[in-house]
Amino acid sequence: MNDLTVLELDALAEIFNISVGRSASALSELTQEPVTMSVPVVHVMPIHRVIELLSPGIGAERLTCVSQMFNGSFSGEAMLMFPENSSLEIVRLMLGSQVPIEQLSEIEQDALNEIGNIILNACFSTIADMLQDTFSCDLPELTVASVDEILQKPESEQTVLFIQIQLALESQNLEGYLAFIMGSGSEANLQQALRGFLEGVQ
Rank of each mutant, 00 (worst) to 15 (best):
M69N: 12
L88S: 04
I51L: 13
A11W: 01
L190T: 02
G185V: 09
S19I: 02
P56T: 11
L27V: 06
L190D: 04
N117H: 11
L9S: 08
A24G: 14
Q32D: 12
L174G: 04
I165E: 10
Q192L: 12
D133A: 15
L142C: 05
T159H: 01
A78I: 01
Q192C: 03
M69F: 07
S19L: 05
L131P: 11
E52I: 11
A179I: 02
F74A: 01
C65M: 14
A11E: 12
A122H: 01
E8V: 00
E29S: 10
A60L: 13
F82W: 11
V20T: 13
L63R: 08
S38F: 10
Q164A: 10
S73V: 11
L112Y: 07
M130W: 09
A128K: 04
L54H: 09
V39R: 03
S28T: 15
E84K: 13
S146Q: 08
L54M: 15
M130R: 14
L139T: 02
M69C: 07
T143K: 12
Q98N: 12
L198M: 12
E77L: 08
R195E: 13
Q109W: 06
Q152G: 04
Q68A: 09
E141M: 11
E141R: 14
V66Y: 10
Q98L: 07
F197Y: 15
